[in-house]
């Protein structure tokens, strides 16, 4: 019985793994941040940073006016470990949207313009999930 249950569970999961791999290969010809072909270069306060262009455009597509906190996070190596980040920031006042980019160690969080973003507060929230914030930039969508 146990084997039947496990087989029932595993077969669709493995099929999905193959499906995700095909989708992933189609959209991304690379694994890491070293490939710059699809990256968007933004300048904030004279400092340049990279974002995945397709990913960024998708993220802002439904936003009208917002400020976006772009976080560089260390230790965000697996989906399962990053779940707490999404759960924590979703509770914030003025929260609009979040995107976790595991490949580049980036988290994008969109807030209402009225919210005052405090780096130390964000740093504490990232740490409460067990990761470290190493950089934070804010973009605005007027």
């Amino acid at each position: 019985m146990k084997r039947i249950l496990i087989s029932v569970f595993l077969l669709p999961s493995l099929a999905l793994a193959g499906e995700h791999q095909m989708k992933h290969d189609k959209h991304h010809s690379h694994d890491g941040p070293e490939n710059h072909e699809n990256h968007l270069h933004k300048m904030v306060d004279g400092q340049e940073f990279q974002l995945d262009e397709e990913r960024y455009n998708k993220f802002v597509a439904d936003l009208s006016t917002a400020q976006i906190a772009i976080l560089s996070v260390q230790g965000m190596v697996c989906d399962f470990c990053a779940r707490g980040i999404e759960k924590t920031f979703k509770k914030d006042e003025g929260y609009q949207n979040i995107d976790v980019d595991l490949s580049n160690g980036k988290v994008l969080i969109a807030y209402d313009m009225a919210v005052r973003l405090d780096r130390s507060d964000i740093e504490k929230k990232i740490l409460s999930n067990g990761q470290n914030l190493v950089d934070m930039q804010i973009l605005t969508i007027p």
Partner: peptide, 12 residues
């Protein structure tokens, strides 16, 4: 990991 899934994907 035989492939690198995105956030929210099935990871293996």
């Amino acid at each position: 990991a035989p492939y690198l899934g995105d956030y929210g994907d099935l990871h293996t």
